[in-house]
Design a protein around this nucleic acid. Sequence first.
DNA 1: ATCCAGGGGTCAC
DNA 2: GTGACCCATGGA
Length: 302
Amino acid sequence: MHQQTILIAVPPLFNFQECLWFLNRNYDDCLHLVTETAVFKAIATPYGDVLFQVSEQGNFLKIEILEGVANPECRDFLTAYVSDWFDLDRDLLPFYMQLKRDSRLAYMAENFSGLRLMGISDMFEALCWSIIGQQINLTFAYKMKRRMVERYGRHIEWDNQVFHIFPEPAVLANAEIDVLRGMQFSQKKAEYVIGAARAFVEGTLSRSLIDALPDFESRQKALVGHKGIGIWTANYVLMKSFRAPEGIPHGDVGLLNALTGHGIIAERTEKDKIEAFFRDYAGWETYVTFYLWRSLAVKPLT
DNA sequence: ATCCAGGGGTCAC
DNA sequence: GTGACCCATGGA
């Protein structure tokens, strides 16, 4: 019998509740289940599908494997997976130093202390999700994602609940446009998602391909070369999946709203001011973006 | 009804 | 390279 529990030491400036809250917010994400004290998630691994739960135990994150293999290799995989998901290896202190130098955003270092940039380690998932989320409100986007995942993804049943796994590229590559349209995808959006899936199947797009490129600009360019991937989508993927600090989702409505809301810009068109703002946060562009997104959501009183 | 939402493509200049 | 315009579809 393999051990079912893994403990990961938590870094300084880490707040599990903040991370948990962001995973939940008020949206219906079909790819994890958040409770008061834990998050449940099912993923595909090289060792088969696994359902696990992450909670906090003292100064450790505790991963409990609920379904699927728990051999040492898979345990290592899950350890790396969760570390990446919660961005545990990053030292946030320099970021908080910068926030505190910025009178407009200094409060974030206190109010959101310990919030990590929650990632999407599967690049294909990050790409599909960002395509789905283009130009529509998030409530609707989560609804569309759920329909697609329920139709094309595998799942694990446990304790009378269903935990969905994001569909494989090979499955979505054979999806029919009309089926996606029935899920309220626009014609173009259906084409983009299926096109992305086919690119992954054909090998013209992959994590290793992007990883092999020398710098941020070339990675961005390689992504934008595909239909349906503009600057916003490319940078979103680079932010959430590759953790490139420079992956600012330029033009993002939420980002622009937060920038105006904090008095950093007066108009959405003030490109030079936006540039100057991010220059102050060099190396932390995506983190400050993430915290600005966080600031848009009002945390309910508990 | 009207404006908006974590954009992208196309096409003129 | 930049800007105007169109597209698409539900939320509030």
